[in-house]
Design a protein around this nucleic acid. Structure first.
Lengths: 184, 184
DNA sequence: CACAAGTTTCAATAATTATTGAAACTTGTG
DNA sequence: CACAAGTTTCAATAATTATTGAAACTTGTG
């Protein structure tokens, strides 16, 4: 929806980006960053698009703006809903579903920590506990050494768990305050 | 090298895992976990293998124990050296290179944070700064909103940077102490 | 309950990423 | 400096992961 009250670009800003261009760059950047994070590109791009969109978007809008198929758009928006990063926004009198992003970045961080902790850290802890509990032969040479490594890793995982759980529960000001005071 | 002083399995521990089996399970677990972490499976498995090996291993050993090609073994061990997770251990009078893992898990954590921060967080911060600095047209509707989102993300990235840098520098006892006291 | 509007599923396919293995290279030694 | 032992590179290929798009399904409405 280009604003008709501002149709001609300001000549003094010939090299200035339109908002649309800047948003496109942001979407691209967010998508690229996500790759190293184990989150897939489409999901990250869709999140970025919704983050910088003032209005709620429909599946149709997501498809056309990101140039992806209907199936992909549907699956990905569902996943964002699962993560809690995006909400449904039903428009009165409309059949179609619209979506808006959670814009509070601390809240976004919490959602991401919660999901990734659940999928990765918790899963790893379960496997480690299971492995450590298996009966072994303590007289084998190297048995103690192996269990020491295992124990160290478990301890590390527990610390990470405690810290992440704390971050999730913490209040914004308190958190930033404490952490920054601690390390700066 | 199976210990010849302990050739027959203890019958009372018929279901006990041999150390070798337990190690194999750990290697498998570590490899699977890494997948969700953007680290590749072979690298994680090799790291796990070296972590639980009492002696230094050669490229040859890595190849046969992990069932991977020479090329893969060579590339991957180089990458582990780059990350600082593994050291060369030259045996006197031997041409062949041997490798041992850093076994102090806090040190391991530091290496991983350092590398991932460099590749991911620092890269993202650079892109964000660049995007925020681009000239735009402040009269466009939505301009302020867009830059607010950008600013929020930058602030978050800065906080993460500060915290991670702190963790890397911190002493073990101090760190565990502080963090755990803070959140428990 | 038939229809239209919209959504989801999933097998086929495309895109990406990891691995192989043979050839080229390096390095220490007689 | 020729050779042997070992290492690295990289084009070809395999394995994995993401995406498409058409068919099946769902849901609200006259």
């Amino acid at each position: 929806m280009p604003d008709p009250t501002n149709p001609t670009p300001d000549p003094s800003a010939a090299t200035a980006l339109t908002l649309e261009q800047a948003k496109a760059q942001f979407i691209h950047l967010w998508g690229a960053t996500s790759a190293s994070w184990g989150i897939n590109r489409t999901m990250a791009q869709m999140h970025a698009l919704l983050l910088v969109s003032a209005e709620a978007l429909s599946t149709e809008d997501l498809m056309t703006q990101l140039q992806i198929s209907r199936g992909n758009a549907s699956m990905t928006v569902r996943e964002l809903l699962d993560w809690g990063l995006v909400y449904k926004a039903l428009k009165p009198g409309e059949r179609r579903e619209y979506f808006v992003a959670e814009k509070d970045m601390l809240q976004v961080t919490r959602c991401i920590i919660r999901e990734r902790k659940r999928r990765e850290l918790d899963a790893m802890k379960r496997s480690l506990d299971q492995l450590a509990a298996l009966p072994g032969d303590p007289t084998e040479p190297g048995y103690r050494e192996f269990h020491r490594v295992l124990g160290d890793i478990q301890q590390l995982a527990d610390s990470a768990d405690t810290v992440l759980t704390g971050v999730m529960k913490a209040e914004k000001t308190w958190l930033i305050d404490k952490l920054l005071r601690m390390f700066t």
